[in-house]
Write a protein that binds this DNA or RNA. Sequence first.
DNA 1: GATGTAAATGAATGCCATTCATTTACTGGT
DNA 2: ACCAGTAAATGAATGGCATTCATTTACATC
Lengths: 227, 227
Amino acid sequence: MPAPIPASSAGPAESVRRRAGRPTAAILDQEGITTAALKLISNKGYNGLTMAALARSLGVAPSALYNHVASKDDVLLLVEDHLAAMVDVSAFGVEPWDAAVRRWAWSYRDVFSEHTPLIPVIAVLPVADAPKTLAMYEAVTAGFRDAGFPDEMIISAIVALEAFVFGAAYDVNAPEDIFDAGSLAEQVPNLTAAVDRLAAEQHTRPTDVAFSLGLEALITGFGALRG
Amino acid sequence: MPAPIPASSAGPAESVRRRAGRPTAAILDQEGITTAALKLISNKGYNGLTMAALARSLGVAPSALYNHVASKDDVLLLVEDHLAAMVDVSAFGVEPWDAAVRRWAWSYRDVFSEHTPLIPVIAVLPVADAPKTLAMYEAVTAGFRDAGFPDEMIISAIVALEAFVFGAAYDVNAPEDIFDAGSLAEQVPNLTAAVDRLAAEQHTRPTDVAFSLGLEALITGFGALRG
DNA sequence: GATGTAAATGAATGCCATTCATTTACTGGT
DNA sequence: ACCAGTAAATGAATGGCATTCATTTACATC
């Protein structure tokens, strides 16, 4: 019965190396993996989210993760579903339909603008694989039904709004001068004039102006088709 | 003066190995790289687009590519700009504004729905780095100006339309049954009812219905703000 | 004819997700 | 009390990937 090996003096981060074999208490579960991934993303960005880094932040070997997730995409799915729960659907059934859509869409965009690498995953993800995401859709759909929209147009309207939200989430991360033509400005006079004029007028973020403009158009347009 | 080594008999694909050193005539240029990349993408998809595969399809060593592009992202940028030239802006200045926007947006979505991995690149790409993309924006901007839109709203309107187009491009590639809740259907009755109703009514592709719905709302909404 | 630059090869580098054999712990059945 | 099966960890591969660098050769210019 050998005495436990003392920690090698360093810090709290430097833990004793675990020997091989199943530990007495499980170290990993999907929830822990999800929150560790979120912390890693928040600290190092999506480039810093590697299976090795994730394992290290959890104090395990990389291969241990595969006892709990099938792949890195699976980790992204867990993160996505966690974020979906943060989207604000609370206004549906409480505030008028247009105000609820507005709150939902702005919140949805804001949440995912920090997580654009998830968009290619979400956009083609069957909702059955993501329960919290599914709950979000249910709330939104119910809001549309209550507001008198015909069933056969609700999904299409949500899909259209969502497409706009995803695209706008990318736009939030675009550089402010993305439309500067630089040395080619003379060759694109109309674009340059419009860009200059926008810069002169605005005080709020250009990306927010564009989002508001599009969202209000969509809300108005859909509202006109309500039953 | 040794005799030239005969080709190893195989086929036209099996060429003589080039010896090291600068060849008499340059083999690579950006245009060749771009068209080879497009062919590779079309045959093998974006997963098949690796620097090694690209080099092989051009009959060179991978490192040779780096004499002509700075990185793989640079290759994607070349591909993007090539595709931008395929987007139909011909209706601007010819047809009425709303019809021109409709043609542009549908064409834009159709082109990039086959190239969604480019969207994260485009969405934050300074236009000055992509001349054909820049030309597209100039044509669209000119169309808006001719139609009487105030300069300060044109960029915002284009950004909003583009966001919708990018999001919709992803949607084209989503599985048709993406909203099926599967075993969780009982827990999301509103969503399930709306999904079922849509399936019962539609004959055109759901993704096209949603795109049309959103696009018409945007066109109507923006049109109302024209000067 | 020397010198610099451009365009190729080929070998290495480092990172990455993923797999597999192995070890150890717990649980349920007999 | 034993045994079998399953679950969760380690640690050592594996193969693919973009990218870099030293080297070689060709061409253009002075």
